[in-house]
Design a protein around this nucleic acid. Structure first.
Lengths: 356, 356
DNA sequence: GTCAAGTGAGAAAAGGTTTTCTCATGCAAT
DNA sequence: ATTGCATGAGAAAACCTTTTCTCACTTGAC
């Protein structure tokens, strides 16, 4: 009876293994050692280029290891070294609008350091966030990068007293943390200066809700460059607000703007569509510039939008390298690092590059 | 002599602990055991509800563990159990257009099993893909989910002989694998039947490139329901193709379509915009239906698009649960599973729900 | 007063790797 | 001949858990 049970269990196990694709025990350093006729200590030292041994021995071990396809078990290694070569990316940006480029940058920067990334999407749900953080800590992540969709909001979870390094990217950080963010002021300046340079004088600013920090920063820079001659229209982040704003602007008396600096690409697209419907030509009559360089919106607009790119991938890259520095114990100056934006010129502004 | 040695070692250990003060090494089961005055074996059994011991002992250990904030080290646990509670998600969909919903579903399904997800974006780069796969295997992932942006394309890496289970989601799988995909035929049928039901008779189909499997499947279902009275226009997946298709349709002689079934939401949006520019009212004159339910496009179109949702999140959820089943050794029938699509009714079709 | 059975708890091994310590061996210098 | 010292390589401990095995003790039955 007991025997039957054991047999059945074994059978089941083997069957499972077969389905899994033939999961016979992996090749360990023991196999390498015995195949090379050395001890595991020697094998380890040979493979890691540490310890003392004859050059011939080292070479032989290495050759055999690669021949039989040995790959060290990262779990075992991590257990000892207290480094898992794993980091966690925490985000509350469900759409991935901002997170994806950041993630791409992180991954790009860390993949050749052998670091993998856990992606955890927490939808402003503190309990879910805590669950994910706990799971990551249990898995001994070397660090955590927190990212979001807004520079002036915190993630709904406290990461300030963890015993692993935390870096913030495109979300608000804590007191003594390292935080990466885009330089919205510089980005806005870039946009408005471009419009001025191509000869536009009456530049209006249609943007998102005033309570967004980015909105205030961009509006501030706009005023610095363009002065206060044209109004700033605050609204929401949607195409329909772009439409409505055009309506508001064009129904008031007096001269109309000859350029629009929009708070994001969706607003810009709405505005461009509204202008077209009124028979106003973009870019001949009015230049329009967006913000975000959200390809899917900017490139599909007619004409394609000139816009400001926040270089989120680069931001992710730097955040990734920084969390790695910290994980390896190297000191990193805390503070907020502003990364410059870049102007992406397409056809919605005219000027030098408008007609080719 | 042996006793002395053991004593010295213990002393040294305790000193180390004291020196650590609490800032250094994490809390291990040793701390729990000594705080509770039991051995580590007993502590382990108490916490895992295994083994035999007095109810009082078990409770005490559990209470103390939670008091001092003990969390088991997943690396150590994984080393022994050969389960890392980690899976990898491999994708070549850079935009995240399809991957994000799938990822959300996977994460959603697995988070309360304690499983975390490595996200690896490989951009059709075989070398990068291999690097990521190797890194994941080294980290002993319990399984891999491969996902993409096209049902009829493979990822540029061979996953067929891994010793961990692999599940394919929204990408083409291998011979004896488990593959999840949307039922595009059923989805298309849903769309065309809806148009018929609200009284449309001349339904045209504007869609993507014919070499896409999904395109052929949707077109097939379209013909089955709508017959061959109206043409199918193959093109590309962009708004501008939607525009152009309208031009083509409206410049030919004879009766115009009273409904459009579009191959994706971008084409639908382009078509709606083009119709508006011609003074044709949507949905009063022409009903338009999209495919994908890509919120950012469908909801921002004027009027918002009725469209077909491929339920990618559910697809991800099922893929996640399946890879877990396989990882736990439970048998899973190989084959392709088609998941039904769902019609999302907004305002671009009219009919019953058009005016409220 | 011995035995069998049951109960509670600890010792030890295992998992794969790295690192420190120890041990031969051979060789040059005294 | 003895000491001193490189050199090459292995033994064992450590990382943290889980699990199996073993042991001591109690209890009720003979």
């Amino acid at each position: 009876m007991d025997l039957v049970k054991a047999f059945l269990r074994r059978l089941q196990k083997e069957e499972a293994l077969n389905l899994a694709g033939g999961k016979r025990g992996r090749i360990t350093i023991h196999e390498v050692a015995s195949a090379a006729g050395v001890s595991i200590s020697t094998a380890s030292k040979a493979l890691n280029d540490t310890g003392r041994m004859g050059a011939e021995t080292r070479e032989r071990v290495k050759r055999i290891a690669s021949e039989i396809g040995y790959r060290p078990n990262a779990l075992a290694r991590g257990l000892l070294s207290k480094r898992s070569f794993t980091i966690g990316l925490l985000t509350n940006d469900t759409y991935g609008r901002f997170t994806l480029p950041v993630m791409a940058g992180i991954s790009d920067a860390l993949v050749d350091h052998g670091v993998s990334v856990f992606l955890c999407a927490i939808e402003d749900d503190p309990a879910l966030a805590q669950t994910h953080v706990d799971a990551m800590l249990d898995k001994q992540v070397d660090g955590i990068i927190a990212t979001g969709k807004r520079l002036d909001r915190r993630l709904p979870v406290d990461l300030s007293n963890l015993h692993v390094p935390v870096v913030y990217a495109f979300t608000e950080g804590t007191q003594n943390s390292v935080t990466f963010r885009s330089d919205d002021e510089q980005g806005a300046k870039l946009a408005v200066e471009w419009l001025a340079k191509i000869g536009r004088r009456r530049i209006a600013h249609i943007t998102g809700p005033e309570e967004f920090f980015s909105v205030r920063e961009r509006a501030g820079a706009y005023h610095d460059v363009a002065g206060h001659r044209e109004p700033v229209l605050y609204g929401v982040w949607s195409e329909s607000w772009g439409h409505e704003a055009i309506e508001q602007l064009w129904k008031r008396p007096g001269e109309k703007p000859d350029a629009l600096f929009c708070g994001n690409d969706q607003i810009a697209r709405g505005a461009v569509d509204a202008l077209r419907e009124r028979g106003i030509k973009v870019p001949q009559d009015v230049s329009v510039i967006g913000f975000d360089n959200w390809e899917i919106v900017a490139a599909q607009t007619r004409p394609p939008l000139t816009t400001v790119d926040m270089e989120l991938k680069e931001l992710g890259r730097q955040a990734g390298l920084t969390v790695l520095e910290l994980a390896e114990g190297r000191p990193v100056e805390p503070g907020v690092r502003k990364l410059p934006c870049r102007l992406v010129v397409r056809q919605s502004c005219g000027g030098k590059t408008s007609r080719e």
